[in-house]
């Protein structure tokens, strides 16, 4: 199990790093899918089977598919990739990389101070998640539903205008 965790972690970090550096949109998305699947595996090793399934279905499935559609629709072809390459000069990496590394260092220093602990032996079943979600978190679920409704209406409205103007 531990080996699976290390391998999955390695794949996740690597594919994420590749995803943010690709010039071609479709390539980047494919690396992102791999990253998400690897994270799903990490979830599984952490004993969150239900979360892992959600990660695969919703993230890697629905969300990324949506983005693939978009990339195809916008037709980010060779010219766009060339421009991306032109935008990603080494110089522009300096600032963000420093920020990222500092963030990393800070949080690691915080984590290193305390004991993050070891996994508890209790197994969290999807049933427990469901009970918690529709028990104490019922209000949050309702709010989430409203958020989704608002997102739906908003996206529809923006896209509708797009068509009307076009």
């Amino acid at each position: 199990m531990n080996d699976a965790f290390y391998v999955a972690s390695g794949i996740a970090v690597l594919s994420t790093a590749l995803a943010i550096t690709r010039a071609n949109g479709v390539h980047a998305l494919l690396y992102l899918v791999i990253s998400l699947l690897a994270v799903a595996l990490v979830f599984y090793t952490l004993g969150a089977a239900f979360a892992a399934a959600l990660e695969v279905i919703v993230y890697a499935g629905a969300i990324i598919v949506l983005m693939v559609f978009l990339v195809m629709m916008l037709n980010l072809g060779g010219a766009a990739a060339a421009r991306e390459t032109q935008w990603m000069k080494p110089r522009v990496w300096i600032g963000p990389a420093i920020l990222g590394i500092v963030l990393e260092a800070e949080i690691v220093s915080i984590l290193a101070r305390g004991d993050a602990g070891v996994p508890s032996l209790a197994v969290i079943l999807p049933r427990d998640v469901g009970i918690a979600m529709f028990g104490p978190y019922l209000l949050c679920v309702e709010l989430a539903s409203m958020l989704l409704l608002a997102a739906l209406a908003g996206a529809y409205r923006l896209a509708y205008l797009e068509r009307a103007e076009g």
């Binding site: 943010i20 980010l76 935008w87 920020l99």
Partner: peptide, 15 residues
Amino acid sequence: ALGLTGVLVRRNFVF
């Protein structure tokens, strides 16, 4: 941190 770096580096909205 990788995601943050990506946000700051990329100029394309999709990325």
